[in-house]
Design a protein around this nucleic acid. Structure first.
Lengths: 120, 120
DNA sequence: TAGGTGTGCAACTGTGGAGTTGCACATCTT
DNA sequence: AAGATGTGCAACTCCACAGTTGCACACCTA
């Protein structure tokens, strides 16, 4: 089964990627992602550009890494992080599939209601 | 400017829809969305199918409505809720645009590093 | 006019997460 | 070897939020 091929019904009922949305539901993490998209950097480097502590950033990077939104590469004593577009695209496709599923179901229900409630 | 046309850079820097992700980052809210996608219902009706209180559901519906993920229709003394696919599709497009932006920037950086660091 | 059903608002509790400080360990440089 | 820089772990505080109970109000119906 191809990766991008997600049944729109199953995508809803199998449970949506709640953990990933939680990862994206934080301003600091988006700031980090923006900085990393400008240029990959280490936690300490990010600490120089953001208003929060290195340790706080490290925690956020942990969350982002677990969610698959960021890739960590150890190089000597420092760890270089960079954003991963693939994961985000995957979620985008999933969301679109779910949205289409909603619309299809509602369409069906409306058509049914039309037949029963207003048979002219 | 067409609705679907989102500059991939601006989409990142103007701030991502964090509020919407927060709305999606809850299991109970997804359960509610699934139920509503099966068939639109009121808060009390949902309370019969979900393991939480009507009041808790009402709070979640408020969040979902504010996020534009659910549409409320008052009919007599009851309020009928139904999911809105359009909002979710919009976010999907936004995420995809952001992801492509990441990939493009990293590509550019890599190409640059190739020229400088390994001029063969 | 009651009684039942659906909503709304307010206060309270419990918990998870964001951010901090402090310290220990690893690694590069001189 | 010694100092400097980067990272990791642990404990603590603070606060937003999920969920609850309790009550008041609005609306259909007998």
């Amino acid at each position: 089964m191809p990766d991008g091929d997600i049944a729109e019904v199953g995508a809803v009922e199998d449970g949506a990627p709640v953990e990933l949305f939680a990862a994206l539901a934080d301003d600091s993490r988006w700031q980090i992602l923006v900085e990393l998209s400008r240029s990959p950097a280490s936690a300490s480097a990010l600490a120089g550009r953001l208003p929060i502590t290195r340790q706080a950033i490290a925690k956020h990077l942990r969350v982002l890494t677990d969610a698959g939104l960021v890739d960590a590469t150890k190089s000597g004593r420092e760890v270089r992080y960079e954003p991963v577009g693939a994961r985000l695209s995957q979620v985008a496709r999933q969301l679109d599939a779910i949205a289409r599923g909603w619309d299809r179901r509602l369409e069906r229900i409306r058509a049914l209601a039309e037949d029963v409630g207003d048979p002219s």
